[in-house]
Design a protein around this nucleic acid. Sequence first.
DNA 1: TTACTTGCAAACGTTTTGCACGATT
DNA 2: AATCGTGCAAAACGTTTGCAAGTAA
Lengths: 149, 149
Amino acid sequence: MVEKIASEWIAALQARGYRMSASLQVVVEVVATSPRVLSPIQAFDLARKKNTKIGLVTVYRTLEKLEEIGLIQRVHQPSGCQGFIAANAGHQHILICENCGLVEYFSGDRLDNLMHDVARESGYRISGHWLQLFGLCTQCQYEIQSSGH
Amino acid sequence: MVEKIASEWIAALQARGYRMSASLQVVVEVVATSPRVLSPIQAFDLARKKNTKIGLVTVYRTLEKLEEIGLIQRVHQPSGCQGFIAANAGHQHILICENCGLVEYFSGDRLDNLMHDVARESGYRISGHWLQLFGLCTQCQYEIQSSGH
DNA sequence: TTACTTGCAAACGTTTTGCACGATT
DNA sequence: AATCGTGCAAAACGTTTGCAAGTAA
């Protein structure tokens, strides 16, 4: 299932005309299968465990391609904006664990009314929105509680 | 009115124990009175028009202080995350013009139900959220339309 | 065989730090 | 008088670009 996602991403890249290589495959696997937000360097470190030859630049270029196709999205956090996570189509909003980066997706349908109201009141023509929630996943709640905080 | 905001910020900084200087005053004035998102360099350029001696580092350090006190907030945009805008207390959500950076504030009260639902469904303990809307302000809608786009 | 991709090194823009001087309290 | 803030220069950081060599199509 998880491997299936990676192979679908590879197919999408090939359909876009990109050539296949071991390096690209490894980066795609790492990013496609991560349930957590990954920075370029984190993706690089994970990829290096599978392919020692890989360069950081290749990670950047692969992320660029994946974002261009819409398979990943950049994640902005108070701690920084280098993160990426799979862009789960149809679930454009995410909930991020501030401790471990684990991501949950949720629907933002209930925002439509709000956006409509704001557009009318402000006169702006609204073209997009970001909604992100931050918190602690169940696992991290437990661990942090257990360690005495 | 606009000068009042700046002097309130100055007072808040002094109450925090920070010393006053011409450089700091100029930066605070620039940032406090801007209706648009400002990057550090933009704030620096504006401040230099009022005080040629000012250094970019001072702008960074002043922004750091203002953010620490909660008078400004960082603005994340698809084009970058260097922007800052006044943090209008009680109106924590913003609508940004993608063309000129003009910011409108709006209330996000209607998000409470959504957040409660997501917390229950995910098991996360939610501690914060970001909601930003992007679009074109009325002025920029007009200008872009007039110029043939 | 052609042209895209890689990895390295260097360049780049932004942000931070070290430090001597000057200014505020 | 003591300490904090400033401005400059240099360092650090993440990201992008130039290029020669390697590889996919």
